[in-house]
Design a protein around this nucleic acid. Sequence first.
DNA 1: TTCTTACTTTATAACCTTTATAAAATAGTG
DNA 2: CACTATTTTATAAAGGTTATAAAGTAAGAA
Lengths: 146, 146
Amino acid sequence: MTTERLQGAIDTLKNTKVRMTPQRHAILEYLFESMTHPTADEIYKALEGQFPNMSVATVYNNLRVFKDVGIVKELTYGDASSRFDCVTTEHYHVICNECGKIVDFEYPGIDEVESLAAHVTGFEVETHRMEIYGKCQPCAEQTTKH
Amino acid sequence: MTTERLQGAIDTLKNTKVRMTPQRHAILEYLFESMTHPTADEIYKALEGQFPNMSVATVYNNLRVFKDVGIVKELTYGDASSRFDCVTTEHYHVICNECGKIVDFEYPGIDEVESLAAHVTGFEVETHRMEIYGKCQPCAEQTTKH
DNA sequence: TTCTTACTTTATAACCTTTATAAAATAGTG
DNA sequence: CACTATTTTATAAAGGTTATAAAGTAAGAA
């Protein structure tokens, strides 16, 4: 399942003349296996054992390459580090304000917002972004008991 | 109109025991008069004439104070600088990918997303964020002609 | 009005994420 | 196997934001 999608990503790269390197393979593998939307630094730290000499720049460079090719999405949150999400189906994120956990969430109904916004503002609308913030169940429980 | 809202903000601060300083007053005034959702640096530069010795830290500190009190909202966009929006009614933003222009946009219909997300994920949902990205009319025209 | 004190401002340095640079290494083609 | 354009590495630097400590000041009390 994840290996299939990983293979698909590797094929996509091959088709766009992006060279496969051990570092790239490892970063991809980590992205597709982890369900946690990791930050660049988390990826870097996770692969330290495998690639003691890998540079942070390599992680950032490759994440950008993956993003340009369209197999990875960057999730930006102000000051904090970006998180990276290997693209599958369209989905939104529900984010815990306490622990930062990110949960995927499907909701197909919002696309009409784009056409309305285009109509009202005159923009050529391309995309939208939506996130939902709150407290995940474990964090909510911890707050309740004192 | 804007002066009324400004006065309201000042009153809010007084009620929360936040001291009024000339710098604070000027930052607030600038925020309420400008319709551009300025960055901290833009505010800093705009007030340079009035306060030649003001420190950037003052701008950041006060924006945080205003945010905590609830009279200002921070809009975060990854690497780029945060923008600050004096809170009025609930609204969304339509953002130009070319020139960065931000246009306000009302759309009351999305609140049901929150309850659905709460139901599906078990989160205690608090807020959501949505933005629409595209090309504003002037930028779209510039791209078309060559 | 003046005093007092806690809150603010200033100036500066530091932090953190991300990007630029140039030299060394290497993937993939012929 | 050799060639070359692409990657990696190591390092420095950029850019936004925050921490710190000393100096200044708002606002209530006397």
